[in-house]
Design a protein around this nucleic acid. Structure first.
Lengths: 358, 358
DNA sequence: TTGAAAGCGCTAACAA
DNA sequence: TTGTTAGCGCTTTCAA
């Protein structure tokens, strides 16, 4: 393996000249540069990453920190990872994947103190997330995917849940739906302050109220069984429902199954919209799901790009950016059925008509 | 940030003693060790990863190399990643995620020459995979997830497709099925020599022949639409089919949809087995899919562990290990229907009965 | 059982 | 525009 010394000797220049050719931190005459480049090519020279990192105090490595609690990653989280990896790689950085949960603060501090990471992207951020403070104290620049409760001074990218929910509700209202049930994550998850669950809940209340409609919400465990139970509960609470909006990617197939069992056709009797979903998953259902497609890999990419920008510029701009999910209309939504032979009696009267279309 | 010097000074020993306490490469008296450890604790000392890497020529970083061509990772591949990350982290190593496809050989060589990786795990290995040679030439120890055509001298972990297919076929034959169709990946994928597609194809032929049955196989594009088309083709070719075995995780929901459209009930009319699937995906279907559950995260873990073993022991044992998928019986398989009112006329007569049960 | 000191391969003053 | 050289923080010989 050729070193910088070898290159310098072959090119008949000093090591520092070789170094400066590489880093571009000082002007080099064209002639010298050519000599050096030729020598590099001839020796097939590649700078040693560790030596460079030690001398420059910059490893060119960024961390992607994700909790590994549950049953692996969903499609959306996986997209964060691939998007981040691609962005880092494109910028000549390396991305290390570190499974550090909210509980492993000591591990995280240890990791940060090793000075291996120039910066970090935090996934699955909690409303109260000790990892943020731990990294800040260690002086590790960071960008969140998601948001903590207090975001002052923090850089993050996140899904624009407010906008996403509003758009989903508008789609349904535009189709004439009035009785819309929102199936969220589990009560425990909401209570734990999981951002997406909390924000969509609030956004749903706001969106429905804006249309003069009552916001009916049901929590569901993250499983098909949870979805079944949620639909049952939903029909108990709102027998005249004509549309379901579901945040819970795991529950939604249970919802569809339970609808089928009850002889309720999608979208003829009940329209279904899946929130924050990947197209792959939406396509699995029959009919394919109308869904709010999450900008997963874009978020991963943007998080890394924001991080690198602040590493290179030394810039301290708090990059805070929200991306809405995109409404992709497939087969699971349609006009609201005429309110003739609904299951039970409607217990709420819409106070006004929605807009004509979407 | 405290350095080794600080620790040495505080403990009133030399730096080398501190280093030896850390690495354990030479005996240290208990008294000295205690002094050093106390000083480390007091200073909250963490060794600098770059300095250590430069001096020891071992970065404690391993690479997970995955192509990023297609539409992201499936659930199985994601499990590789999380399993590998967990294993690396547990062993005190770091895992860098590098999107290097079979086409990016130059990128790969560059990466390898940077001496940043102590070793690498290769994902989505092709039958002919230039990355293997590139890494070997660069002197980077590697372990494959999957297999190349010629595996002599290579370390790998992979799914035992032969065993997996055999078990799936036996499950169906045990239920009385005789007319079983195998839905594979696309013809192009098979032609490209994608290992799982080729190996399951061969294994299916062998397993069916072993039961004296005709192996009917249909390729399918990796999408719901592909699955629909495949089922149509399958019914053309074998109108009397009673079971479908599907390798293609994306196609299978299309198959289910098309079965429903045609009024064929699962499992009453047609049994369906999904191969190399994650439980999460299997649970999404209604009824939940009987599936061969892939040992995804175990494979990722084993690959990293095998790699680290060979890094630490310097051992050159070619770790070659196959793990079968586990049959998980859910609701999509049942006894074969009585061969009374099948769609068309059977064009193959089973030559003997299968075993009684499974 | 311990210490002194020579690197590891690079970056970045400092000097010319 | 280029060269000299002192580190970066650690590992590991060599010597005691």
């Amino acid at each position: 393996m050729a070193t910088m010394h070898d290159v310098a000797r072959l090119a008949r220049v000093s090591v520092s000249t070789v170094s400066y050719v590489l880093t571009g931190t000082r002007p080099i005459s064209q002639a010298t540069r050519d000599k050096v480049l030729a020598a590099m090519a001839e020796l097939d020279y590649q700078p040693n990453a560790m030596a460079r990192g030690l001398a420059s105090r910059r490893s060119r490595i960024v961390g992607l920190l994700m909790p590994m609690d549950e049953r692996g990653l969903g499609a959306t989280e996986t997209a964060f990872v691939t998007g981040a990896a691609a962005a880092a790689s494109a910028a000549g950085y390396h991305l290390v994947l570190s499974p550090v949960g909210v509980g492993d603060l000591d591990d995280l501090r240890r990791l940060a103190s090793q000075r291996m990471l120039d910066g970090a992207v935090l996934m699955e951020v909690q409303v109260e997330d000790g990892r943020v403070a731990a990294l800040q104290e260690a002086g590790v620049p960071l960008v969140l995917i998601g948001r903590t409760g207090d975001t002052t001074g923090l850089a993050y990218v996140d899904i624009d849940f407010e906008q996403t929910v509003r758009q989903a509700v508008e789609h349904l209202v535009g189709l004439g739906h009035r009785r819309i049930v929102y199936v969220n994550h589990s009560a425990a998850t909401i209570a734990a302050g999981y951002g997406p669950a909390v924000r969509t809940r609030d956004a749903f209340v706001a969106a429905m109220s804006g249309h003069g409609l009552e916001p009916v919400m049901i929590p569901a465990e993250d499983s098909a069984a949870g979805g079944r139970a949620a639909l049952t509960a939903a029909l108990d609470q709102a027998p005249d429902l004509t549309a379901v909006l579901a945040m819970n990617e795991n529950a939604i197939f249970g919802i569809l199954g339970e609808l089928a069992v009850r002889g309720l056709a999608v979208p003829h009797d009940v329209s279904v919209v899946s929130m924050v979903t990947s197209p792959q998953v939406a396509e699995l259902a029959t009919p394919a799901l109308t869904a709010m497609t999450s900008p997963g890999s874009a978020l991963g990419r943007m998080a890394v790009e924001a991080l690198l920008r602040r590493l290179e510029d030394g810039g301290d701009d708090d990059h805070q950016r929200l991306l809405p999910c995109a409404l992709e209309i497939r087969g699971s939504t349609g006009p609201a059925p005429r309110p003739t032979a609904a299951a039970g009696g409607g217990d709420t009267v819409p106070t006004r008509s929605g807009p004509p279309g979407t």
